[in-house]
């Protein structure tokens, strides 16, 4: 009798166990269902990286590698120069100019300069805007009577104003002497970067704190930031005050108020929203780089260390150039 009872109990337990197992499985599967991540905001800013700004490139066959020129006077043969212009940096360009130069003795263009505006990389335009700029031209009468062909080059330049923007957190440490034994939520360290989405890069920021006060009674500290700048692109830096439209012409370049043209940048910076004291005039940026110092006018009161946002802005003009070989064939 007890054996029958026991067997009956076991059977009930088995059935109950199966039901429990199925319920648990359903709950597990429900929990593992994919969550809707559409409300999760992107965290990292991946756009302020690299050293590219405006990139230009010829389309494959515009111009073609060979052009035909008439042997005698008369209308020449048309051709097109098509350029893909892309903003691969993080700054929006609103007054850029693309200019094309050809050998005037052999080719002529309807227009040698065109303006462009392109948004840089951002959450809204992750790859940066691009457009096609097309120039029309025609070949001229072939001058050399004996030659069958002439090798020439088509040069395209992009000229624009740009800005490098570095946003980073720095540790504000008021114990300038390092003698206090206190807890700290951060440690002062240099910031290194390979680029901020612009051809001129802030490669390093060195933070230094200088005590302000009498004797051992240090009541405040003055932070000083050493900004290491370098031209990481393949073009030339021009003063931000220079006239962009004249940069891409064959005429003299207007330097603006500063009087300095080639290789100059303007630097400004803010710490926790307060403007730092940086050089008030454009500073020269040689090929090997430059160091610029910015400091906080009002010293910070000594207190607990904390993380503060630092924003560095470098303004400049930039010219980059590409070229393409073309062979001009004499008709006939």
């Amino acid at each position: 009798m007890f054996r029958n009872i026991f067997q009956s109990v076991l059977l009930r337990i088995e059935k109950a166990g199966l039901v429990v197992f199925l319920l648990a499985l359903m709950l597990l599967l429900a929990g593992c269902a994919g969550r809707d991540n559409s409300t999760v905001l992107p965290v990292q800013d991946t756009f302020h990286t690299g050293t590219e700004g405006i990139m230009i490139g010829f389309l494959e066959s515009s111009p073609p590698s060979e052009l035909l020129a008439p042997a005698s006077s008369g209308s020449g043969y048309p051709f097109k120069v098509a350029l893909r212009v892309q903003n691969k940096g993080a700054f929006d360009v609103s007054d850029g100019v693309v200019a094309v130069n050809v050998e005037q003795d052999y080719m002529s263009l309807d227009s040698s300069r065109k303006a462009f505006s392109l948004l840089g990389r951002s959450f809204a335009t992750p790859v940066g805007e691009e457009e096609l700029v097309i120039f029309s031209g025609y070949t001229r009468q072939f001058r050399e009577s004996q030659a069958e062909s002439h090798d020439s080059v088509v040069v395209a330049s992009s000229c624009y104003k740009y800005r490098t923007e570095l946003k980073s957190d720095v540790c504000i440490v008021s114990d300038a002497f390092g003698v206090s034994r206190g807890p700290s939520s951060c440690a002062a360290k240099d910031i290194s970067s390979s680029g901020q989405g612009a051809p001129v890069a802030v490669t390093k920021v060195v933070t230094k704190f200088f005590p302000v006060g009498a004797g051992r009674d240090v009541s405040s500290v003055k932070p000083v930031f050493e900004l290491h700048l370098k031209n990481g692109g393949d073009g030339r830096v021009v003063s931000p005050g220079a006239d962009v439209s004249s940069l891409c012409s064959s005429g003299p370049v207007s330097a603006g108020d500063s009087g300095k043209v080639w290789g100059y940048v303007s630097v400004s910076a803010r710490l926790s929203g307060a403007r730092l004291s940086c050089p008030s005039v454009p500073v020269r940026l040689p090929p090997e780089g430059a160091v610029v110092r910015c400091s906080l006018e009002e010293p910070l009161e000594a207190g607990a260390s904390y993380v503060a946002p630092l924003i560095v802005e470098v303004d400049y003009g930039y010219i980059s150039t590409v070229s393409k070989q073309v062979r001009i064939l004499r008709e006939g």
């Binding site: 965290v43 800013d45 946003k167 957190d169 807890p183 700290s184 939520s185 951060c186 803010r270 926790s272 929203g273 607990a304 904390y306 993380v307 946002p309 924003i311």
Partner: peptide, 15 residues
């Protein structure tokens, strides 16, 4: 958040 600051990442310390 100050102008130009899109994100701020402090390390809070309770002592």
């Amino acid at each position: 958040l100050q102008e130009g600051v899109d994100a701020y990442r402090p390390v809070l310390l309770a002592t």
